Simulated assay, not measured.
Amino acid sequence: MQQIYLETRDLLKQIEDAVENRKQFSLVRIGDGENLVMSQHHVWPISKVLQERWAMKANRGEKGLTLPNLPLRNAVVSSVKKATVVGILPAGDNTINAPDYLKRPLTDKVFAHYQVKPAVICHAGVNRELARMKEFWSLLSGRRILVITREAEKIKERLEKEPYLQNIVYALPFDQWSEYRKTIKWVIAHKNHFDVALISCGVSAVVLAEQIASLTGKVALDFGKANNIILKGRPN
């Protein structure tokens, strides 16, 4: 089966189609953090994973998860296999600030090990582009939006103002992977009250986006650093 690569405007069309026709749709994205989480034990020894700066930051409470974490590894692998579109970094890409060996080379190893073969892929940095596109915000205009992120109220407040003028019906705080079950339970209970979920909470967003789409039939996007662009005008 041939893999389809979507440019940003093609992805936008797919999101629009899913929103307008009420189709289940999930976008997940793979960066260095997702690669490290998925590589635990099977692709890299845990000891090697824990030596990485990203893992050290995670274990200092900066990434919304702690390592080792095999249940999270399994959940991320499962969600990447089931997502509608998977964002990956092209070889040699510099969108994210991480050592090259933690980017596409590790994605390739992880995907080979778990036999992950996404049917549809796009650039992992697509969220940053979407956040800056008028077309993206105009297609969401009038839709009922759920935001899930650490700074939920701040994002809600900003997105309700110019130039976004979005209808944020719920702003759900999410800080740690340990809040996953409680969050999913809440989302299922409120599934008839939103159309699109924008999720920015690190690696956990991969699982949340895919599972929210699967369990509610809605559009759920792993929105990542787009939050920083909305709040501060830059990704980091």
Rank of each mutant, 00 (worst) to 15 (best):
N97F: 07
R104N: 01
V126L: 02
R150S: 10
K134G: 12
T149E: 10
W54R: 13
K82W: 06
S78K: 09
L89Y: 07
A124S: 06
V49G: 01
L102K: 00
T149K: 08
V120W: 04
G61W: 07
A152I: 07
R132F: 00
V85I: 12
P118W: 06
T84D: 11
V85Q: 05
E62W: 04
G64S: 09
V49Y: 04
V28E: 03
A83D: 07
S141K: 15
L67H: 01
S138E: 15
V49L: 05
M133G: 06
L27E: 07
A131R: 00
H41F: 08
V43E: 04
Q51Y: 11
L70E: 09
I96K: 07
Q51I: 11
K156I: 05
G142V: 15
R53A: 13
V37Q: 02
E160H: 00
A152W: 04
P71C: 04
W137R: 09
R128C: 01
P71V: 01
S26W: 09
P68G: 05
Y114Q: 14
S138P: 10
G142F: 15
L139T: 13
L139E: 10
R128K: 06
R143L: 14
S47I: 04
K23H: 10
A152C: 11
H42D: 08
F111I: 14
G87Q: 13
Y101W: 07
L102T: 02
I30V: 15
Q51A: 14
R144Q: 12
A75P: 02
R73C: 00
I46G: 02
K156S: 11
A131K: 00
R73T: 01
E62Y: 03
F136P: 06
G142P: 15
K156M: 08
L67P: 02
P105H: 04
K117Y: 14
D108A: 10
L146D: 06
K81D: 07
R29E: 03
H123W: 00
L36E: 08
K154H: 13
R158G: 04
Q40C: 05
G64Q: 08
L140N: 10
F25H: 08
L106M: 04
P118K: 08
I121G: 01
I121K: 03
I96H: 07
Y101H: 08
E157S: 12
K63M: 07
A112H: 14
D93R: 06
